[in-house]
Structures are given as C-alpha cells and as structure tokens.
Computed example of a mutant assay.
Amino acid sequence: MRTIGILGGGQLGGMLSEALYNYGAKIVFYDPDPLSPSFHKSANHYQGDWNDAAKLEDFFRQCDLVTYEFENVATDLLNYLIDKTKKPLFPAENVLKITQNRISEKSFLKQNNLPVCKFIACTNLAELTSNAKEFPFPFIIKTAFGGYDGKGQWVIQNQSELEKSLAEISLLGNSTFIIEEKIDIFSEASCIVARNKKNEIECLPIFDNIHKNQILYQTNLPSQLPTIVQKKLQDIAIEATEKLDVIGLLTTEFFISKQKNANTNQDFEVDEFQIYINEFAPRPHNSGHISRVACSINQYDLFARVLLDLPLHTPKLYPGYFCMGNLLGSTWIKQKQGKNLNLSCWKDHPNIVSLTLYGKESPTEQRKMGHFVCHADNIHDCNKFSENFRKDLNESD
C-alpha cells in the first residue's frame, strides 16, 4: 500500500484523497493552517510553515511520493527535500517552477510556439513603470509570483488608471511583474490532461467557464464551442503537457477571442476564433469538479491512477447538460448562519444532483466554500435551474 503525501490541505487535496483511498492508498497532508479541512480526512497530517525544512523533511520521509494541490511552494526547498529524502514529486519540481511564475510560464509558451498574448517581463518597479508607459492600452499588470482569483492583478484601461495602479503597486515593495495585453475574450475554457510515466495520455472533455470578479462562477458541459475548436484546444493542451514533461495532471486555461490581437498567430486560428493560453495549473482544477458527476472518470480519479501506476481509460461524458456552480463565502454571510449553511431550499430543486461543502471554518466574501452540480436536458434549463438554486440559497432564513 503506497503512502501519498499532499502538500496543501484544501478542497482539491481532499477530493484527490478520496480517489486515492478508493485504490487503497494512505494519505498524509501538510499545511500551515491548523484548521485545514482535509485534516479531517486523514489522521496522519502535518501542520507547519512552508519554510520549515525539518518538518517538511519528516513529512517527505513518511511518503512514497509527494504531490501538491497548489503552486506556491518554494521549488528550491522542494529540490533540497527530494535530494535529501529520495522521494519523488509529481508533477516534477521543474514543472512547478515554470508554472508558479508568470514570467517563466509566458516565456515557456513563447519559446515552444504555444499560443500566448503579447507580454513584457519587468524585474523591478522601475522597469514596470518604464515599460507600462510604452505598452498600448488596454493591458493588465500582474505580479510574477503568487496571485490567484484576481489577486495581484491590475487592469489598465487608460493613463489615469495606470498612475493610480502604479501608486498602489509601489506600496508592495520591490517585486517582479509582467505586463500582458488585454484579450478581447469571447469565451473561456479549460482542458485537463493526465499523463503517466509511459507517456500514455487521457484528456477530459473541454469545459466552458464563466468568471465573475475574476473568480470561477460556473462551468458547463458539454462545451458549446464548435467541435473543431474543442479538438484544437485538446491538441494544444496535450502538446503543452508533453513539452512540460508533466507526469500527473495539467490543466490548461484558454482564452478564446474573435478579435486578432498584437500576438495573433495563424497556427492558432480556428474558423473565426483565435486561441490563447491564459495559464497552467499542474494539479486538479476548480473547473474539473464537474467531472465528478458528468464524466465516467473524473479528474481526481485520473490523477490517482497516474500516481499509483494504474491503467488509464478515456473519460466518457454522460448524456444531458451539466452546470457546476461555485459557492463562495458570500452565500454563508447572506444567510447569517455563521459557518453553517441552510440547505432546506434544496428540496425544491431536484435538478441539483450534487452538492459538496468543503468544511472550511470561516466564510469570507470571496472564499470558495463549496460547489453544486445541476443536470438538465438542455443548456438553457441547466443554467436557469442553477441560477434559481443560487437565488434561493442566498435568501434562505
């Protein structure tokens, strides 16, 4: 029986642990937060800082191999731990090093002829200020490290917004940044690819994603993009997985545009659509929650099979239409129930076929606290049933 270590104790690690348990694996979690929800899923867990080399070394030694559920772990320390304990990390630390830094990630895309927007790397605030004055509006400034769900990002439409944002950014101290052209987005999509040591690859269906305030609001299946576009997205995601040499899971997030931008490449034009890669996530992905209900094999199961050297099979999409909705802490706050959620209205919503709460102790406005999946015969009803459920949840007494 293998022991799998998971760096991070959030919902992604928790759902991965369930798939691993199904195949008889033991799980060890490591997270700085003593209230990490996944600690309830394994009696064997470590609570410690991300820079606690001694505790992390002990954690590594308890495992046969280690993976991670988020990207913000120092790769220098991981390299030291892998060398010291001889325990492998999947996906490998070099994958993490590229994907946790926006400059490295965009540079990788450019160097490997993968679809990428126009960008400029800035190693300090002075470079950022100078380059931003020359970059055509509109554009986005992002911190190179950290940042998720819109954090560490500033959308710049004009000179006034640039001056205001630079004043705010200057308070961060010395850092590295990237300036990206702002894509005129028609649609957002993600593709999750699993690859094992034998270079066997399986791909989940293309997910259509909707964001609000830069946080994933909804994921739909099957995708409404033309079949030829979906095939191109899968081909690009598989090529990226191979070029990064990912053993594990890679999520590729795409922007789909109908407008040619400064970095338009005919290799990534399909019909009237222009394809760009937004970013990678070498782990399970928020949009992939929907696969637990909509697909014969879900993202966590695929990842578990890779980690445990089990055979891969092609995920099949079940009939009908599915919609996954994120539940943020704002729903808990509106209900005024503390850390509890009143689900009594669910009785009036039979099309909500699955609901998962993450067990987080303290709801805050934008914190991901759970998700639900709706199933219907057509996409119109699926979206309508989903919105009605959200409305009733937010009005529950």
Rank of each mutant, 00 (worst) to 15 (best):
C191K: 03
C191N: 05
I192Y: 00
I192Q: 00
V193G: 02
R195Y: 10
N196D: 15
K197I: 09
K197W: 01
K198N: 13
K198W: 03
N199P: 10
N199K: 15
E200H: 13
E200S: 14
I201K: 13
P205S: 08
P205R: 07
I206G: 02
I206S: 03
F207N: 12
N209T: 08
N209L: 07
I210W: 04
K212E: 15
K212W: 13
K212M: 15
Q214D: 13
L216F: 14
L216K: 13
Q218W: 13
N220M: 15
N220D: 15
L221W: 09
S223A: 12
S223V: 08
Q224L: 15
L225H: 07
L225C: 11
L225S: 07
P226F: 05
T227H: 14
I228N: 12
V229M: 09
Q230N: 15
Q230H: 06
Q230P: 03
K231C: 11
K231M: 12
K232R: 14
I236R: 12
I236W: 11
I236G: 10
A237W: 01
A237K: 00
I238V: 14
E239P: 04
A240N: 08
A240M: 09
K243E: 05
L244F: 11
V246H: 02
I247N: 00
I247E: 02
L249Q: 11
L249C: 11
T252V: 11
E253W: 00
E253P: 01
E253D: 08
E253S: 02
F254D: 00
F255K: 01
F255D: 01
F255R: 02
I256T: 07
S257D: 04
K258T: 09
Q259C: 11
K260P: 02
K260H: 06
N261H: 14
A262N: 14
A262Y: 12
T264I: 08
Q266H: 12
D267Y: 13
F268L: 12
V270P: 01
E272A: 12
E272L: 10
F273R: 10
Q274R: 11
I275M: 09
I275H: 06
Y276P: 00
Y276F: 01
I277D: 04
I277Q: 06
E279F: 01
A281C: 11
A281L: 07
P282Y: 03
P282I: 04
R283D: 01
P284G: 10
H285C: 05
H285V: 05
H285S: 08
H285E: 06
S287F: 02
G288F: 00
G288S: 08
R292D: 10
V293A: 06
V293H: 02
A294I: 02
C295E: 01
S296Y: 08
I297V: 14
I297D: 00
I297Q: 07
Q299G: 12
Y300G: 03
Y300V: 01
Y300T: 04
A304I: 05
A304D: 08
V306L: 06
L307D: 12
L307G: 13
L308H: 13
D309W: 05
D309L: 04
P311W: 02
H313Q: 14
T314G: 08
T314F: 10
T314E: 15
P315N: 11
P315E: 08
K316G: 02
L317D: 07
L317G: 06
P319V: 02
Y321V: 09
F322N: 03
